[in-house]
């Protein structure tokens, strides 16, 4: 269970998040949509503290951080291990092979033995369909393959929730499908996921709930079939009309 209460984020004078309250139950897939500048990516980055919220409380599976007080670096590092992050531009480590990218966290952060880490990294890469590309460097892989390594790297830390920040936005159209398929499989296995995306097909097919954000607030949340066919808010309707 993930809960966000009163999440505010300010960059200088600019208030990007104006009080977000959100609960996501274990095993659910939540897709966040909204125009650019709506704060959806910032909200996601606050969840693993890549951005430090100005105020608010975030808790994941019982561990919580209250940002109205000072938060220690140690608490942030252990909190981050609850989440796995998949970035828009993959951010793989270019000096490491696909296998080494996936093994890095378990070895360095969790202190696992190389053998154990290698075993799990191998099975994760096989799972995302890259069993034959383990010893390739990121530069030798296509965007879709890199993003699948990125997913495997995040899964290797055995997070409670996976965060996806526009995972297919940097991909050529023909490579989007392979990444979405991996995400769909993950959802079916019961992984808790929060996905910021413009892939409405994915939202329709996979999401348990769709959240529409605009201007730093959650405007509307509902089941995908409801929100896409019968949006309650004017702003949601406008946005959906523009992209469809």
């Amino acid at each position: 269970m993930i809960s966000i209460k009163g999440l505010h984020k300010q960059f200088g004078q600019l208030e990007v998040l104006k009080g977000i309250d959100l609960q996501v139950e274990k095993g659910k897939v939540v897709v966040v949509i909204g125009p650019s500048g709506s704060g959806k990516t910032t909200m996601l980055r606050c969840l693993n503290v890549l951005e430090t919220p100005t105020s608010g409380v975030i808790s994941i599976e019982g561990q919580s951080l209250d940002f109205s007080k000072a938060v220690s670096k140690k608490n942030i590092a252990s909190f981050r291990r609850l989440t796995g992050m998949v970035f828009q531009n993959y951010n793989l480590f270019p000096h490491k092979t696909a296998l080494e990218n996936v093994m890095e966290g378990p070895i360095i952060v969790k202190g696992e033995s190389k053998e154990t880490a290698r075993k799990r990294a191998t099975s994760l890469l096989e799972k995302v369909g890259l069993g034959d590309k383990m010893d390739y460097y990121p530069a030798q892989l296509s965007g879709g393959q890199q993003q699948r390594v990125g997913i495997a790297r995040a899964l290797a830390m055995e997070p409670e929730v996976m965060l996806f920040d526009e995972p297919t936005s940097a991909l050529d159209p023909e490579l989007v499908g392979e990444v979405l398929k991996v995400m769909k499989d993950l959802a079916q296995e019961g992984m808790t996921m929060i996905v910021v995306t413009h892939e409405m097909r994915f939202a329709r097919d996979v999401a348990d709930e769709v959240i529409f954000m605009d201007g730093g607030v959650v405007v509307e949340r509902n089941k995908p079939e409801e929100i896409f066919t019968n949006p309650k808010e004017e702003r949601t309707r406008k946005f959906l009309n523009m992209i469809q």
Binding site: N48, L50, K73, A77, S78, R80, R81, T83, G84, M85, F87, N89, N91, L92, F93, E104, G105, I108, V109, K110, R153, A154, A156, M157
Partner: peptide, 15 residues
Amino acid sequence: GQWEAGYSIGMTYTQ
């Protein structure tokens, strides 16, 4: 993004 990728898998600054 390289720092962030490191942090996102739980690394400290030094790591």
